[in-house]
Design a protein around this nucleic acid. Structure first.
Length: 440
RNA sequence: GUGGAUGUAGCUCAGUAGGUUAGAGCACCGGAUUGUGGUUCCGGGGGUCGAGGGUUCAAAUCCCUUCAUCCACCCCA
């Protein structure tokens, strides 16, 4: 197999398209109703956009996992590894701080990370992204979180777990990191090698360790939530208060952790059991200061992103069937040479109103009906010498098997009436491996 | 970057004490059925056995290397 998609990439085949459309349509509907506007930014950005965004962690993560290259003009470009940085670059470049505040945006599209693949992790993957820029109100945090839950519910997911916490203000984090370093230092030998490394580079990530021994040790420690300062504590209380008021189901995670340090105060994640080790469907948090860090005005912001592939995985795990495949109302079959061009022209006219397909060559009834059947059409419309002499077409209902001759000029009216009577034509995605619907 | 499992037809898979032209089901094409589909029956096309090298009279099968896929670690924007 020499010709194949690059590692970690894949094709979205025709039968996969409906669920993609369903996802994006649902996103547009749910977020649009809340006043969010869609923003599409380039997949390619100057590397410095992402390097500035991740800051000190750049050495670790950015260099290793970003697709960065020099173009022919000597520009250093990067395939975006996430959507937020590009959205904020557009916010700054387009002067969106002059727009009615806060600016509420959503985006969706591909992103790229040069990671090793596993379940729920691809090199080209897709995200749905939301940002609220220009508000430091706890209402913004609560709305962002609630909308994430609304979208998950609208997609049909029920077994999601929403975790909300706070990473505090920078001072709080510094105090907690100091505490952690001090508290764990005596036990350094007992920690797993990776946790020892984390203790050195990003102590809070020790809390995330999958090592059982580490977790025993971690359980004895104070948690980030215990170190919140007055401001962060009040903000967190306000956020959870709104969520409670609105009846949003969530758990407080007192040890929620972020890998990058531009996050402050609110942090949240949605997980799903049943999609493998990479159980996070998405997450987000508040990033006051990031816009300024990128070279823009000092405006606060909060946002989240969800992984499209993981959403699909979760939907499959819950047995939620995506929307249906489109099927033609009629498939036209020409049974002699003269009918080929007649029906091609007829198909073009009918397509102003209906979904119509036809064979490109003359077919006998056996082949023609087989073609019609495989197309998934409700009706087969046949025309040959006999029909031409009588000025009619033969219209056959492919499921019932009955057929009737209709004057050629009356076909549109007949199909219009038939379309009203038919239940919405559809084929379940469960038939994905089969070209023709099961007619029992 | 690390580890485990797996790579045979478009798909799902048989086939290893090494032995003629590598098989099945499904799918596809044709015929039975030159004016009536789905079912059935008959036939056909389709394979660098992931790739490269080695051992051997002989390799899908044994050895080495490599690539890919899946899962996990790591990382997580």
């Amino acid at each position: 197999m020499r010709l194949q998609a690059p590692k970690g990439t894949y094709d979205v085949l025709p039968l996969d398209q409906p669920r993609w459309h369903h996802l994006f349509d649902t996103t547009r509907r749910v977020l649009g109703r809340a006043g969010y506007q869609e923003l599409t930014t380039p997949i390619l950005e100057h590397a410095e956009v992402f390097e500035k965004a991740v800051g000190d962690a750049a050495d670790l993560v950015v260099q290793k996992e970003m697709y960065t290259f020099e173009d022919r003009g000597g520009r250093h470009l990067t395939l975006r590894p996430e959507l937020t940085a590009g959205v904020l670059r557009a916010f700054i470049e387009r002067g969106m701080h002059t727009w009615p505040s806060p600016v509420k945006l959503w985006s969706a599209g591909p992103a790229f990370r040069a990671e090793n693949v596993q379940r729920g992790r691809y090199r080209q993957f897709h995200q749905v992204n939301l940002e609220i820029v220009g508000s430091d109100s706890a209402l913004a945090d609560a709305e962002a979180i609630a909308l994430m839950g609304d979208l998950l519910a609208a997609l049909g997911l029920r077994r999601t777990v929403l975790k909300v916490g706070s990473v505090g203000d920078p001072d709080d984090r510094a105090r907690y990191n100091a505490y952690l370093t001090q508290a764990l230092a005596p036990h350094a030998e007992a920690l797993s090698p990776t946790s020892r490394e984390r203790l050195r580079l990003n102590p809070m990530r020790v809390l995330d360790s999958k090592d059982a021994g580490d977790q025993e040790l971690v359980a004895t420690l104070e948690r980030p939530l215990d170190f919140l300062g007055e401001g962060a504590r009040a903000h967190f209380g306000a956020v959870t208060g709104h969520l409670d008021d609105w009846g949003v189901a969530y758990e407080i995670d007192p040890a929620i952790v972020r890998g990058l340090d531009y996050y402050r105060r609110t942090a949240f994640e949605v997980h799903h059991q049943g999609i493998g080790a990479q159980s996070a469907l998405g997450g987000g948090g508040r990033y006051d200061g990031l816009v300024r860090q990128l070279g823009g005005p000092d405006v606060p912001g909060i946002g989240w992103a969800m992984g499209v592939e993981r959403l699909f995985d979760a939907l499959e795990a819950e047995g939620v069937t995506a929307t249906d495949r489109d099927r033609p109302l009629a498939f036209l079959v020409a049974m002699d040479e003269a009918a080929v061009s007649e029906l091609a022209a007829l198909a073009r006219a009918l397509r102003a109103e209906f979904r119509i397909e036809h064979a490109y060559v003359r077919r006998n009834p056996t082949k023609g009906l087989r073609d019609a059947d495989r197309s998934g059409a409700i009706y087969a419309v046949l025309r040959g010498e006999r029909e031409r002499d009588a000025g009619v077409v033969m219209v056959k209902h492919l499921e019932r098997g009955d057929q009737v001759e209709i004057p050629l000029e009356a076909l549109a009216d007949h199909l219009r009436a038939a379309a009203r009577d038919e239940p919405q034509p559809s084929t379940s995605l469960h038939d994905a491996g089969v070209r023709t619907a099961d007619r029992g």
